[in-house]
């Protein structure tokens, strides 16, 4: 299995705050990695380090065999990295379709406008926003905006997709739809890292899970291993039985 992304000893500080301490992991192509941890554990900071929003102070990030530690966000996008934002970032005064076309035009495949048009229509169907394509992005509700984020990321046909809390703020039926969408994305062979607080979903979907606490990587393993890991239970899950319950429910 080829390693798509390798994160080696990544450390990030904000002033006196140690946001990430020597985070290290390899992500093989085609896997889904779940990233969990309490609020403020550094999950989104890790995304920001990977995609170039805040380059890390120490450590290396290797993507598709290239050193990209200090690469700009647009360079990462053009190399095949796409992400969604925890706080949605729609291009408000553009239509839903145009939003998605931006993803297709400027992502790694660098499509022309007319190709992008086709891709955007197809992706919007896929995430269930087909009928909204002519609306302004500003007019969507939160769940639709999350789908739009997803669609924009997918339209770039990424190698690696970073999903930042795509389930947060959705109701249970919307969560069900979104989980199905994530599974379908995996079937397309796209590698995914997802930050999620909805444990049931993340345990269910991920191949491996990485747990952050106060910027430290406290555990990494399969969902089974994580659910039985003492440190994780203590730091995060609190209730020793909770993890088992979560796994069984599905």
């Amino acid at each position: 299995m080829t390693v798509l992304l390798s994160v080696q000893g990544v450390t990030k500080r904000f002033g006196g705050l140690q946001a990430l301490t020597k985070v290290t992991f390899d992500l093989p192509e085609g896997q889904i990695l779940g990233l969990i941890g309490p609020n403020g554990a550094g999950k989104t900071t890790l995304f920001n380090a990977i995609n170039g929003v805040y380059p890390p102070e120490e450590g290396h990030i290797i993507f598709r065999g290239q050193e990209v530690t200090r690469a700009k966000t647009y360079t990462m996008a053009r190399m095949g990295l796409a992400r969604t934002h925890q706080i949605v970032q729609p291009l408000n005064e553009l239509t839903v379709l145009e939003n998605v076309m931006v993803g297709a035009c400027f992502g790694q495949e660098n499509h022309s406008l007319s190709n992008a048009y086709g891709i955007a229509e197809e992706v919007l169907e896929f995430v269930g926003l087909g009928i909204r394509s002519e609306q302004l992005a500003a007019s969507l509700n939160v769940a639709q905006k999350k789908r739009l984020e997803m669609a924009r990321a997918l339209a770039s046909r990424p190698k690696l997709l970073l999903l930042d809390e795509v389930l947060a703020g959705l109701n249970s039926s919307e969560i069900g739809n979104m989980v199905e969408t994530v599974k379908k994305i995996r079937e397309r062979g796209i590698t995914i890292i997802m930050i999620e607080h909805v444990m049931k979903a993340v345990m269910n979907v991920s191949d491996r899970i990485l747990v952050l606490d106060y910027g430290q990587q406290i555990a990494e393993g399969t969902p089974e291993e994580i659910s039985q890991n003492e440190k994780v239970i203590e730091a995060y899950l609190g209730d020793p039985k909770l993890a088992e319950k979560l796994l069984k429910e599905e």
Binding site: N51, V53, K72, T73, Y74, A77, R78, A82, R83, H85, Q89, P90, L91, N92, E93, L94, E98, M101, V102, G103, C105, F106, G107, Q108, S112, L113, A116, R152, S156
Partner: peptide, 25 residues
């Protein structure tokens, strides 16, 4: 009506998000 223009519109709406999508702002 060009791709270049679409990139500009994306910058207008949200420059950081545009860069994340690959627009070399």
């Amino acid at each position: 009506s060009s791709k270049f223009g679409l990139g500009l519109l994306a910058i207008r709406e949200n420059e950081d998000a545009a860069e994340v999508m690959g627009v070399i702002a």
